[in-house]
Amino acid sequence: MSAFAAVFVREWRLAAAGGGGPAGPAAFMLAALALVPLAIGPDPDILRAAAPGVIAFAALLASLQGAERLFGDDLSDGTLELYALSPVSLTALSVIKAGAYVSAVLWPAPLIGFVAAMAYGMDGPSAGALSLGLVLALPGLALVSGFAGALAAGVKRSGLLIALIAAPLQVPLLVFVAGAGRAALEGTGLAGANLMLAGAFSLAALALAPFGMAAALRGRLE
């Protein structure tokens, strides 16, 4: 087994088991989406109109939940040094971490998004478009959260800092995912364009963010 695969398997296992795995962000997203109707009222029209944005926003917040743990523990217990001196580069490690974060922790978000969209009164195809938007956006959300997590690793109360750093950078994903759901709902014919933009952002993040993360981690190790 190559070193890359070995690290991915280990990181995936640790992410899936440690700290409750997908349970934490999923519970957070569910709780947020259960509370929103209580806040804005049961009017079905308002709920349906708000659904794409609220669901995309809840997914964004959920992606920030685990970002603190992504690199923080590894820095304090010496694991990061081990990786830095191993055959796996820090850039590859960043890709692995983000990949494990999506596939082991964040994966329920599109499912929860779909169910919530139906519960908020969206029709099936629109809920599907929104859910697909979340699938395409998750890598981007995870990479930007991970980038913020790498920058803030080892800082006291880094959770707040991560949210402040990552949220503005994630604005485009929020716009495109919610836009896909809303375009499908309103039948403007632009759902596809929104989905493509969400995917394009994720791809761009995949091309750039790992280098930023590796540079940040190298700085933290020095």
Binding site: A6, R10, L14, S76, D77, G78, L82, L85, S86
Partner: peptide
């Protein structure tokens, strides 16, 4: 070279065997 820092770089959820076989696969 191989480096052993202040920290033991062990994850409390992993078993001793898992930690070792991961390092073995890595190298």
């Amino acid at each position: 070279l191989a480096y052993l820092g202040h920290g033991d770089a062990l994850k409390s959820a992993e078993t001793v065997m898992q930690a070792m076989s991961f390092a073995a696969r890595l190298h």
